Computed example of a mutant assay.
Amino acid sequence: MASQVYGTPYGAEPRHPGWPARLGPLDVAAGTVMLRPIRLRDGGDWSRIRLRDHTYLERWEPTAAGPWSERNALWAWPSQWLSLRGLARRGQCLPFVITVDGAFAGQITIGNVIRASLRSAWVGYWVSSELAGGGVATAAVALLADHAFTSAGLHRLEATVRPENGASVRVLTKAGFRQEGLFLRYLDVAGDWRDHLSFAVTAEEIGEGFATRLVAGGLATRPAPR
């Protein structure tokens, strides 16, 4: 007899449940937020925003080889897109673009997807500095968490954030995540080993959905049908 979780036998699952997909919309202060799969032609917008927001983003992201200007140049996008798309097609991640009023605004990814009896993954995101404080990241996390626990069939989502990153701590808290602990010297960020707070949420905590909670709490609205 095959093991199963939430009524679906492991062997009967699609190869990459939950991807591709289009999620949303949710209206927040900054505009209408939606999520869609990454595309090769996103390279121009991706590079432009990443290069402009160098100082804003680099202090929170893992240390990587090479200068920021090279890692985020237009020519660097195709290899990233191919890698993420390949992982998505193997069911190992769910990579999405965040759009606001239809324009590229950032990325959000569920990564390190593990199935079988764990059904766990992490979520990471970044948003354009021009939209900071506008509710975009919170809406994106809520939309993707709802998707992860329904269509993608996951049981647990985790996120880590530096204690100094108050904005991201607020995003996760407002979206419905709870703090579980502190990882000492967890990740090499900005050239040194940094402590990170650990946040998580499980399927049992989803209730009517995290996006619905945002709406009920006055942090978002659902656009009227057209």
Rank of each mutant, 00 (worst) to 15 (best):
A2H: 14
S3M: 05
Q4N: 06
V5T: 08
P9F: 11
P9N: 11
Y10N: 04
Y10M: 09
G11W: 07
G11Q: 12
G11R: 13
P14Y: 09
P17Y: 12
W19M: 06
R22A: 09
P25D: 01
G31T: 03
V33W: 05
M34H: 01
L35T: 09
L40N: 08
D42E: 10
G43H: 08
S47K: 10
L51S: 01
R52Q: 04
D53H: 01
D53W: 01
Y56R: 11
Y56A: 11
P62Y: 07
P62H: 07
A64V: 11
A65N: 13
A65M: 10
A65K: 12
P67N: 09
R71E: 07
R71N: 15
W75Q: 15
L82E: 15
S83H: 15
S83E: 14
R85N: 06
R90V: 00
V97H: 04
I98S: 00
T99E: 15
D101C: 08
G102R: 07
A103Q: 14
F104L: 04
Q107M: 11
I108S: 01
I108D: 03
I108N: 02
I108L: 06
I110W: 09
I110Q: 12
I110D: 10
G111I: 00
V113Y: 08
V113E: 10
S117C: 12
R119N: 11
R119Y: 05
W122L: 01
V123H: 04
G124P: 00
Y125W: 10
S128Q: 09
A132F: 03
A137W: 04
T138D: 10
A140Y: 00
L143K: 05
D146T: 02
D146W: 00
H147W: 09
A148T: 06
S151L: 12
H155V: 06
A159M: 02
V161Q: 05
R162K: 15
E164F: 05
G166D: 13
A167R: 14
S168L: 13
S168T: 12
V169W: 05
K174M: 11
Q179P: 02
Q179N: 09
E180S: 11
G181W: 07
R185F: 07
Y186E: 13
A190C: 12
G191L: 02
H196E: 02
A200N: 10
V201M: 11
V201L: 06
V201A: 09
E205H: 15
F210M: 05
F210P: 04
R213E: 11
R213C: 05
L214E: 05
V215K: 13
L219N: 02
